[in-house]
């Protein structure tokens, strides 16, 4: 199976600053992938190299088996670039149909395609407005719409929901989830709970280095026993409950992440219904809870024990 994205010893240097340090990874087509990391970690630089906006200082990157920036990739990848603005003098429809025409659509088809992607972003009614008449959030949605033109096989979205209201952010998440049947998305965001809902894998960059590429909710820790996790969010902190949970069969450890959040590590082979036992315990102790999640939250997975 050919990897949809393949990076080998990729590095990027700006003057004395190394934005990416010898990154190597491979991604198969499939479920959306989260790209996370603090500001300045190299996420946008990685996207810029993959989109062909910048050249890597060393190493190579291939998308669908072709070197990034090669003409074979034209129309096969979509990108939401950070902070890129459209021509203010054109209407949304003209802007997007022009891009569709460049991608190979005929004149009439390009208009249909522009309207289709605008509808996905719930902007069809504004198709004859110019960019200057739109709010920041609307502009962001138009940028996402352009990434969806045609039938790209890979779409890179750099902070797609930053600056959007909750309703539109949810709409975009739904669209990504729905479209991910045909398209592989790589989504960069600082909103970990959002990524957790959309993505099945996470790629963690920090100071230009690839810290992890792993499935969300599954531990990357190498332990003698393969442990599973349950995250329990209580309505309010309750230290007494810990000792009682530890007494449940198969529980290896219980850690407080925040006052009201417990990470329970257990051996699933010994007890596959720990979640039900937990619910019974909470009921008997009349301890109210907010959420019980199979696995760890992405935040806990990435920043375990303050290690990262």
């Amino acid at each position: 199976m050919t990897a949809i994205l393949e990076c080998s010893h990729l590095s990027k240097t700006y003057g004395n600053k190394k934005a990416l340090k010898d990154i190597s990874f491979e991604i198969q087509a499939g479920q959306p992938i989260a790209l996370v990391g603090p500001n300045g970690a190299g996420k946008s630089t990685l996207f810029s190299i993959l989109a062909g906006y910048e050249r890597a200082s060393s190493g190579s990157a291939k998308i669908l088996g072709h070197q990034v920036g090669s003409s074979e990739l034209i129309g096969r990848i979509g990108v939401l670039p950070q902070d890129a603005l459209f021509d203010p003098s054109l209407t949304l429809l003209k802007q997007l149909s022009y891009l569709a025409q460049l991608q190979g659509y005929g004149r009439a088809e390009s208009q249909k395609e522009a309207l289709r992607v605008l509808e996905l972003m719930q902007l069809k009614d504004l198709c004859n407005e110019k960019m200057t008449a739109l709010s920041h959030g609307m502009k962001k949605r138009v940028s996402i719409a352009q990434a969806l033109i045609g039938s790209p096989e890979l779409i890179l979205l750099d902070e797609p929901t930053a600056g959007l209201d909750p309703e539109n952010a949810r709409n975009i998440r739904q669209n990504i989830t729905e479209l991910s049947r045909d398209i592989t998305f790589i989504v960069s965001s600082h909103n970990l709970s959002e990524l957790e809902r959309m993505c099945s894998q996470v790629m963690h960059l920090e100071q230009g280095e690839l810290k992890a590429l792993q499935a969300i909710g599954v531990s990357s820790e190498v332990t003698p026993k393969a442990l599973d996790y349950i995250t329990l969010r209580l309505t309010q902190g309750n230290a007494d409950i810990i000792s009682k949970i530890q007494q449940l069969g198969s529980v290896e450890s219980v850690n407080f992440k925040q006052d009201d959040e417990l990470i329970i590590a257990y051996n699933k082979n010994e007890n596959s219904i720990l979640d039900q036992d937990l619910l019974k315990l909470l009921a008997s102790e009349t301890t109210p809870y907010r959420q019980l999640i199979q696995g760890q939250s992405l935040e806990n997975q990435l920043f375990r024990d303050g290690k990262k």
Partner: peptide
């Protein structure tokens, strides 16, 4: 102007 506002990024994905 187009390069400064990032507009070229929409074009290079679609043509050489």
């Amino acid at each position: 102007s187009e390069r400064k506002r990032g507009g070229l990024r929409f074009l290079t994905l679609r043509c050489s």
